[in-house]
């Protein structure tokens, strides 16, 4: 547990800065326009609609590969975030986007399986990932994506990851 009397603004700034450092270091996340909303330790990934994400111009529909990439990004960030939370709260680490060496190394994807459930409409997409199991070397993560309705998923995925070794 962190310091109970730490000022609220300082807590928020510390957490947001760590999350920002994790996300902003990756060019591809920025190119796809993916952002993360944080409520305490809970993350929701958002991919705002953009014309370059389209895979089928006739429907139109978001490219299935983009949906997969979005799910994989959401899974990797959630896994890293969940893994660094304790260290972040106890003050052992303070990742800062301006100091590359302070950034945690990201897990590597071993395999990733995507189920496509509905075609992606030309609208914003949201995703939330859940770390099913995270060991010292391997982790299994489940992730879901939706658009207008949380209950109507457009895709879900499961992936296995190799954890960065200290």
């Amino acid at each position: 547990m962190g310091d109970r009397n730490e000022p609220l603004q300082q807590i928020k700034a510390r957490r947001d800065s760590a999350l920002n450092a994790l996300v902003k270091g990756v060019p591809y996340i920025g190119w796809l326009g993916i952002q993360f909303d944080r409520r305490g330790d809970e993350l929701t990934a958002t991919m705002p609609y953009d014309g370059k994400l389209i895979g089928n111009p006739r429907l139109p529909a978001i490219h299935g590969g983009v949906t997969a990439a979005f799910l994989e990004v959401a899974a990797i960030i959630e896994l890293s975030w969940a893994g660094m939370w304790e260290d972040l709260e106890s003050g052992r680490i303070a990742p800062d986007a301006a100091i590359p060496d302070s950034l945690p190394r990201l897990p590597k994807t071993i395999d990733f399986t995507v189920d496509y459930l509905r075609s992606g409409l030309p609208r914003d997409v949201y995703a939330r990932a859940r770390v099913v199991r995270s060991g010292r070397r391997y982790a299994s993560v489940q992730v879901e994506a939706w658009q207008d309705n949380r209950a109507r998923l457009i895709a879900q995925a499961t992936g296995h990851f190799l954890m960065p070794q200290p």
């Binding site: 270091g25 990756v26 060019p27 591809y28 190119w31 796809l32 490219h63 299935g64 590969g65 983009v66 997969a68 990439a69 979005f70 994989e72 990004v73 590359p100 190394r105 990201l106 994807t109 990733f112 995507v114």
Partner: peptide, 17 residues
Amino acid sequence: LVGDPRTGVIHGGVVFT
């Protein structure tokens, strides 16, 4: 398209696409 800024390796999502 880089997914790992330390190495310059392309993101897996690109290969998937």
